[in-house]
Design a binder for these strands. Sequence first.
DNA 1: GACAATCGACGAAATCATTCGTATGTTTGA
DNA 2: TCAAACATACGAATGATTTCGTCGATTGTC
Lengths: 133, 133
Amino acid sequence: MARPRLDPERRRPTEAEASILATLWEHGPSTVRQVHEHLASQQDVGLTTVLKLMQIMAEKGLLARDTSVRPQVFSPARDQADVQADMVGDLLDRIFGGSTENLVLRALSTRPSSPEEIAAIRRHLDALDGGDR
Amino acid sequence: MARPRLDPERRRPTEAEASILATLWEHGPSTVRQVHEHLASQQDVGLTTVLKLMQIMAEKGLLARDTSVRPQVFSPARDQADVQADMVGDLLDRIFGGSTENLVLRALSTRPSSPEEIAAIRRHLDALDGGDR
DNA sequence: GACAATCGACGAAATCATTCGTATGTTTGA
DNA sequence: TCAAACATACGAATGATTTCGTCGATTGTC
């Protein structure tokens, strides 16, 4: 009696899956061992655990795998920006009542941002509305 | 062989729990029936399911309950801003490589923001760094 | 008070997410 | 060549999450 399965598209990665995706986005297409080495430096996790996860992700369509080489090389199947957009949108709807302003404000106040970062965000805002004031 | 239990503090609400918290933040302290009515308008979910979830959340310390009235009234036990900060921080670390700028940029490009909203965000930025340009 | 409606507790089941042992096949290097 | 090391598959265990049925208690209505 659990929740019915979600539409395969728009399926958000789980926590462990997100770690693996992040690794692949950062380092590019990688073998299981490479991903494991990176993750193991942060958390205690076994090689076969990572393998299993990546196999499942490939089945789900989250990863693409190249079986023509050995060891096999995995790459993210979805664009980083797409996944980020889905997850931000989800968070927005789930606990920010859909208010982008609230989310941005919360993000800015949660983590200290450098003046450079703030300036960069201003430029993004300018690009959105032409810099009206 | 699942993931070990997390520290009770800093425990992020699950998906279903987040929906309930959002309802309570939006409508204030509510009965199970009220929460259910609100949620049922969005998804298909049973009354006893919501009840059970809210009981569990009360046990976990996510909700406070007033048993002196009938029906009982539940309210969020943690501040909305705190939970939002935890969840944004988590998303930041998990798939944005800790870059607030990326997250903000993604949020802004994912959802159309009104000029008013953009102006409000600018004011927040000004408050952070005094409006340096 | 009798009856119906509502409330609340509880247990159990289904599914999901994560973990890893073990078994088997493949490659490498002495 | 042959063994050691590595790669991959697979199944199963475990805990977390979500679901809801059912039963007794409480409340409201006539």
